[in-house]
């Protein structure tokens, strides 16, 4: 699309270039280094990784939860990472993989949806949103092949148009999207989480879809605690420092981030 400002004056930046970009335009700063055609592991780079996210549909919408740990190899880098990111009023992207890439993707996605709404004067459709994330993942696949920046997200949204309702997707690193009816989990702790969610869905007191909010949160906390038990890269619940997973719920009313207090109370009652 032609920007009228550029058409009028090619030297006019409109003040939107960031300062490094302006310096580069004038030849005062070295260009951005291109990614070498070698694997990052060969260069001895330990990438920071975020792990274990889960999402499932319940009576009140979709619950999305993520532990707080970020690791690089055997090192715990950060214990308060937020892997459950709000993209717009009704969409959440949860990330497992390299946060540097994932947070940038989330930022691009958030701004793309808003840009679409503002310019086109209508909300982007759920299919359009799902596809937008898929495309970002595919654009990133070159980096993944070089051993940097793998991201495996979950996307949860509530389709407010017509009878849409709660929609839940997970992706692979190449950008294939898979819509799920009940639950999804990705990241290093996900085998344990999937086991628990499968069990709860089939043989629990109620299928996941019929759970009330408190019970749904309890299931999510139990699943993450179980994942942390065997997987060092999953933080689970830090009982000493009182660090709880991030839990958000998407429904017709929008996104509700559960306060730590509520999670702590449910943890005490149903998990600890």
């Amino acid at each position: 699309m032609e920007l009228p400002i550029a058409a009028l004056d090619s030297a006019f930046s409109g003040g939107v270039d960031d300062f490094p970009a302006l310096l580069r335009k004038r030849g005062l700063l070295a260009p951005v280094a291109s990614v070498p055609n070698a694997s990052a592991n060969a260069a001895g780079v330990q990438q920071t990784q975020a792990t274990t996210i889960l999402a499932f549909k319940f009576a009140g919408g979709v619950l999305v939860a993520g532990d707080r740990r970020a690791t690089a190899g055997n090192t715990v880098v950060y214990d308060r990472a937020d892997k459950v990111l709000e993209i717009d009023r009704h969409s959440i992207m949860a990330i497992a993989g390299v946060p540097a890439t994932a947070w940038e993707m989330a930022r691009v996605l958030e701004h793309s949806f808003q840009f679409f709404r503002r310019t086109q004067l209508q909300e982007m459709s759920v299919d359009g949103k799902v596809r937008a994330l898929s495309k970002l993942l595919r654009d990133n696949f070159g980096f993944v092949m070089q051993g940097v920046g793998i991201v495996v997200p979950i996307f949860a949204t509530f389709d407010t148009s017509g009878e849409g309702g709660a929609r839940l997707y997970f992706y692979d690193a190449m950008g294939a999207q898979f819509e799920v009816t009940d639950y999804a989990a990705t990241g290093s702790g996900s085998p344990a989480v999937r086991g628990i969610l499968y069990y709860e869905n089939h043989w629990g007191k109620k299928p996941l879809a019929d759970l009330k909010e408190d019970d749904a949160v309890t299931v999510a906390l139990r699943a993450l605690d179980t994942a942390a038990e065997a997987d060092t890269a999953t933080g689970g619940v830090d009982r000493n420092a009182k660090i709880f997973p991030v839990i958000k719920i998407v429904s017709r009313d929008g996104i509700n981030t559960l306060p730590d207090k509520q999670i702590a109370a449910l943890f005490k009652r149903g998990v600890a």
Binding site: P4, G15, D18, H111, R118, T119
Partner: peptide, 28 residues
Amino acid sequence: MAAIELASTEGFTRSAADVSLRRLAFYS
């Protein structure tokens, strides 16, 4: 469109708090 593009690019590269109507109007 120009106004949205300018504001969105600014909001993306910096932050939403850095998008200012005064600058958008006077300097762009």
